[in-house]
Simulated scan of single mutants.
Amino acid sequence: MISLDEAVTARLESHGERFEVLIDPDAALAIKRDEFEGDLEDVIAAEDVFEDASRGDRPPETALEEVFGTTDPMAIIPEVIKRGEIQITADQRREMQEQKHKQLVNTIVRNAVNPQQDDAPHPPERVERALEQAGFTVDPMEPVENQVDDALDALRPVIPIRFDEVVMAVQLPADHAGSGQAQVREFGDLQREEWQSDGSWVGVLRFPAGLQNEFYELCNEVSSGEADVRVIKDEDDIGTR
C-alpha cells in the first residue's frame, strides 16, 4: 500500500450515492486507460470504499450492492476509478508536476545527445534551462513517456538535441576483469564479449547515448582507472583490439 500523502481521491457519484477510493495517481490513470498491469494492493492507500474519504465515512452495503453488484472493495475500487473522476488538490497537482518534470528531464538526459558536439550528452542543467526557455510545461496527469516527443519538439529550436544509442567497447585488464566485467556487462545490452589470452576482458555494449559519462565512470571505478574505453562509430568495427 501507499501512504495517504501519496494518494489522490477517485470519486464516483451514482444512484444518489458518492463513492471514493484512495489511489496512486499514476496507477489511477493507468486503470482508466485499461493499461494497469500491477498489483492493486500496492497502489492503494486503503483497501476500502468511502462515502467521504476525508472523514472516513463509508457508504451503506446496500448502496454498494446496488451500484456495483458486490461489497468487495478490491472489485469496486477499479470501477470507481474507471467510471468516476480523479480528484487532486492544488498541492498534489504541484507535487505531481514537479515529480513528472524530474522524470522527464532524467529521461531526456539518459537518451539524448548533442549532435553539434560529437554526440556528447546534455547535462541536466542544460535540459532544465532549455525546457524553461521553451516554455514547456509537464502535464501532471499524463505519463512521462507520452510527453517526451512533445518535449523534444519544444527543445529543438532551443538546443541541438537528438535521441540516440551508442555502442562502446571496454577492455578491463586481467587484475580487474574478474569482478569488473560482472558490473560492466549489466550496464547495457551486451553485444559481444571475449576473454583475451592475457586474461583481460573485452566487452561491447549498446545503451542510451546520454549515459556515456556514467559508463566511463563505472569502467574507471571497477578498474582503478586502468580500463580502455572507446566509442564504436562503425558497428562493423566491433571486435577485439
Rank of each mutant, 00 (worst) to 15 (best):
A53T: 08
V167M: 11
K32W: 05
E214R: 13
Q133D: 12
L211E: 15
A7V: 07
E61K: 14
A10H: 00
P173V: 09
E85W: 05
V109N: 08
N106M: 09
P124G: 08
Q92M: 12
L152W: 06
L12N: 05
I44A: 12
S179I: 09
Q181C: 11
T137P: 00
N220V: 05
D198K: 03
N146L: 12
N114H: 08
G188C: 10
F136G: 01
R241G: 15
R83S: 00
R230I: 10
A130D: 12
V148P: 11
R156F: 05
D24K: 01
F187M: 11
R192P: 10
R230H: 15
G16I: 00
D149L: 12
G180S: 04
T137G: 06
Q183F: 08
A46Q: 10
A27R: 01
T9I: 13
V67H: 01
P140Y: 01
V202G: 08
A154H: 06
N146D: 15
F207P: 07
G203V: 09
L4N: 11
V144P: 00
V21H: 01
E125K: 11
A182K: 13
T62C: 02
P60T: 09
E37G: 06
A130E: 13
A169D: 10
G135Y: 06
S200Q: 05
F36L: 09
N106Y: 04
N111C: 07
R55Q: 15
D39F: 04
L205H: 07
D150Y: 04
E66I: 02
A209M: 09
V222D: 00
D234E: 14
A90F: 04
D149P: 10
R83M: 01
V166R: 06
E61C: 03
E17M: 09
V158Y: 04
R94A: 01
V184A: 13
L22Q: 06
V144K: 01
E65F: 14
E132Q: 13
V144Y: 01
A63V: 00
R11W: 05
P173D: 03
A169Y: 06
A134W: 05
E47I: 11
Q212L: 13
I76A: 03
G239E: 14
P123K: 02
V43H: 04
I2D: 03
Q99S: 13
S14Y: 04
W201Y: 15
A63I: 00
A53K: 02
V43C: 03
R230T: 13
F36C: 07
A30I: 04
E37R: 12
P124S: 14
A90K: 14
D57A: 14
Q191V: 13
I31N: 03
E132Y: 05
S14L: 06
V148M: 07
P173E: 06
V105M: 03
G188E: 05
E235M: 09
Q212N: 07
I238F: 08
M168T: 07
L152H: 07
D153A: 14
